[in-house]
Design a protein around this nucleic acid. Structure first.
Length: 285
DNA sequence: CCTCTATGGCGAA
DNA sequence: TCGCCCTAGAGGC
């Protein structure tokens, strides 16, 4: 589940359920037990996200730093009639029993640490601009991209360049802007970057609202095209992500896939043609 | 049962 | 570049 929109939504949901309330903090699985004991029955101040990082603040400027990694999940339920017995490997559990009762179960996280405000700031300082934050400066990312010989598909996944974009948004935003994922960052024009950034701001904000990733334009929805909706565990309607060998919704070409830096890359070979250098372009046109 | 996969990221080689 | 960490669900036999 976790790209930046997931963490932003989790911060909002945790706020709604627990902010300003005294919270029972436990670790049924045991791996966070010592830290949980220090926080148990103290007030949860609030939660915030930065890229794919989540910080849950407790009184005394203490923060639980959570990173879900590839497979983690944080299940937040509020206004529940009763709090169920924890199922599976619950690293961290938050509970308020006074009405409205709420609980939240963290599983599979790669990171769940009790940290100081200074450490939180250190983590945030390693991140590039986050399209979900109003104060983000996209030019910081552009200055990295325009100087880099690395593939744009690689740069978009680098959290130090831009924070919160994962494998789905990377694949989809490059498709929407017809840019081949292996094209070197320094071959992009500033207008292309601005368009990508503005699109990410919009797509990811919508992802927070829907709690899933949908990237197809109105004319390419299942209803508009008369095609069956996507049926898999991800839910959202997308153009190329995990659609290898399937026909492109726009042109019908077979969607391609390749592994880049250990992750699956997806693109349409016709809608996102291989980049030709400026020199070649100018001689051929 | 087993194997594989996954919207991530780290450190060793 | 590779292996490894975290966990759950799907599919194969």
């Amino acid at each position: 589940m976790p790209e930046g929109h997931t963490l932003r939504r989790l911060a909002d949901d945790l706020d709604a359920a627990f902010a300003g309330r005294e919270v029972e903090v436990g670790s049924p699985q045991g791996r966070f037990a010592d830290e949980a004991a220090l926080l148990d029955r103290t007030t949860l101040v609030g939660a915030d996200s930065a890229g794919k990082h989540l910080f849950v603040e407790f009184e005394g400027e203490r923060f639980v730093h959570v990173h879900l990694g590839l497979i983690g999940g944080f299940d937040v339920r509020r206004d529940v009639a009763e709090v169920p017995f924890p199922q599976g490997a619950v690293r961290l559990r938050l509970v308020t029993r006074d009405t409205p009762a709420a609980y939240a179960d963290l599983r599979g996280a790669t990171r769940c640490d009790l940290v100081s405000a200074a450490r939180r700031d250190e983590v945030v300082a390693t991140l590039g601009p986050d399209p979900l934050r109003a104060d983000a400066d996209p030019d910081r990312a552009w200055q990295r991209i325009r100087r880099s010989g690395r593939a744009i598909g690689d740069l978009l996944m680098d959290q130090g360049v831009i924070a919160g974009v994962g494998n789905v948004y990377r694949a989809e935003v490059l498709f929407r802007h017809r840019i081949h994922p292996l094209r070197p960052g320094r071959t992009l024009r500033v207008g292309q970057w601005t368009a990508i950034w503005d699109d990410l701001v919009e797509l990811m904000a919508q992802g927070v609202v829907d709690n899933r990733i949908d990237t197809v334009r109105p004319e390419h929805t299942p209803e508009s095209m008369g095609r069956p909706p996507r049926v898999d565990d991800h839910g959202g309607e997308v153009y190329v992500y995990r659609r290898a060998a399937m026909p492109c919704h726009v042109c019908g070409a077979s969607v391609r896939t390749e592994v880049l830096a250990g992750r699956n890359l997806f693109w349409c070979p016709r809608c996102q043609p291989a980049f030709r250098s400026r020199a070649v372009q100018s001689t051929s046109t």
